[in-house]
């Protein structure tokens, strides 16, 4: 009886491990491909050629597809995360830099050279809406409830807060020079953004569109890019760019709690659903760092393609 029970427990564990295999998809901006990492073994299990200058990357809400902004081809490539094949590509408007995936599955894309954000249905490739924003739009974030988007415009130094589904700008928030990335808190009430040139993090009250906190990252070389809240909302992870570190900030005070040395020019970040693993793309080191968020230590570095840019998880 006991043996049978143990055997069935092991069997369930084995099935679970297979179904729950986490894959980490990384765009290689200079390599024109996507590296696929098996999270359990921290090894590359596939490389998918996607086209010229892949940058932004994201996962469909149901996990069925991975999307890649192929900037040099004005297209979004759709990847099957299981077979690791490109299923199709669709026209995304000019120079798609990055995007966020709405809970309804639509992609909100920043078209860097055309001062607009465009909304696409990735199932049909259909353009749903266009929103005029400032110069050199880059970072895109969508609130968890899907009612707000933020698009950063790098050369007009603004966060555009956009109402969904109206697709109207409800606030333009002036921030430090060259805002690059933004993220919402789990409850959608707060947003966070990085400014690359001013080297700072800003915290915004979404309802009022007002800045409620800011913190320079001390190090002049920081040039921060991606920013993410921890799953419990108590911390913020910031990719420090040329500081070659991931900064861990207290969400309330924005004070730096930890600095995690990673590879050179760390730009992209992704966090596992359980919040235990943080992945960083270290652009100039051609590697991904795997961080244990309990200890704030790098537990593995995985060599990937040339100039890794963005990261998406399939769990």
């Amino acid at each position: 009886m006991r043996r049978i029970l143990l055997a069935s427990v092991l069997a369930i564990a084995a099935v679970h491990a297979q179904a729950g295999d986490t894959r980490v998809f990384v765009t290689n901006e200079s390599g024109d491909d996507v590296s696929v990492i098996d999270a359990a073994t921290a090894t590359v299990i596939g490389t998918i050629p996607v086209g010229k200058r892949p940058r932004g990357i994201g996962t469909a809400p149901d996990g069925s597809e991975i999307y890649v902004a192929v900037s040099g081809e004005n297209a979004i490539a759709v990847i099957d995360p299981v077979s690791m094949k490109v299923l199709r590509k669709f026209d995304s408007g000019p120079d798609p830099e990055t995007f966020a995936v709405h809970p309804n599955g639509n992609l909100y894309i920043s078209n860097e050279e055309h001062a607009k954000a465009s909304v696409f249905n990735p199932k049909t490739g259909e353009l749903v809406a266009e929103i005029k924003v400032g110069l050199e739009p880059e970072g895109v974030a969508i609130s968890p409830d899907g009612t707000r988007a933020i698009v950063t415009s790098e050369s007009t130094n603004m966060l555009h807060l956009i109402a969904i589904p109206e697709h109207k700008i409800v606030a333009n928030i002036l921030v430090g020079a060259r805002p690059r990335a933004a993220a919402f808190s789990a409850d959608g009430k707060t947003a966070y953004a990085t400014s690359e040139i001013s080297g700072e993090v800003k915290k915004v009250d979404v309802a009022s569109g007002k800045i409620i906190g800011k913190m320079p990252l001390a190090d002049d070389k920081a040039k921060p890019k991606d920013i993410l809240p921890s799953r419990d909302g108590k911390l913020l992870y910031v990719a420090g760019g040329r500081a070659n570190r991931v900064f861990v900030l207290d969400e309330q005070s924005l004070e730096i709690q930890h600095e995690i040395p990673v590879g050179n020019r760390v730009w992209g970040l992704a966090l596992s659903k359980d919040g235990a693993r943080l992945y960083s793309s270290d652009g100039a080191s051609d590697q991904v760092s795997v961080i244990d968020t309990a200890t704030n230590k790098v537990v593995a570095t995985v060599p990937v393609g040339k100039m890794p840019w963005g990261i998406a998880l399939h769990e």
Binding site: T156, M158, N172
Partner: peptide, 10 residues
């Protein structure tokens, strides 16, 4: 041109 664009938002 770029100032006008920023000014339209702000």
């Amino acid at each position: 041109d770029e100032a006008i664009m920023q000014g339209e938002f702000l």
